[in-house]
């Protein structure tokens, strides 16, 4: 298991606490929680060793389409493919930024 941390500049916006996915084979869970800081902290635990460069690229490509909010994001990855990872992160961000509110408050 590898433990990774990425810190990215981000804008402070209202957030819903969000959890999507689960730690099952080929899947991951993504949790978004609020933070006081002005950066996106992305904490990753992944079963795929030596995958730091891949995560770095994935986050950089995501930022092109979605400016990241200031948040603490935790990822527990159980050998998900990059496509699944991207979908799960986008799903979590969509729920976190949905201003109609969320059940996890």
């Amino acid at each position: 298991m590898d433990t990774l941390l990425f810190l990215r500049p981000a804008r402070a916006v209202p957030l819903n606490r969000t959890l999507v996915g689960y730690v099952g084979s080929g899947d991951l869970e993504v949790m978004i929680d609020r933070t006081d800081g002005h950066q996106a902290e992305i904490h990753i635990r992944t079963s795929t060793q030596g995958s730091e460069a891949r995560w770095q690229q994935l986050i950089e490509r995501m930022e092109v389409d979605h400016p990241l909010p200031a948040m603490r994001m935790d990822i527990h990855d159980f050998a998900a493919t990059p496509g699944v990872i991207r979908l799960r992160i986008e799903q979590a961000l969509e729920l976190a930024l949905d201003n109609r509110g969320n059940t996890h408050d």
Binding site: M1, V23, R45, H76
Partner: peptide
């Protein structure tokens, strides 16, 4: 689990 290299769940 983490001590044994297994990814936990929240």
């Amino acid at each position: 689990l983490e001590q044994q290299g297994v990814v936990p769940q929240f």
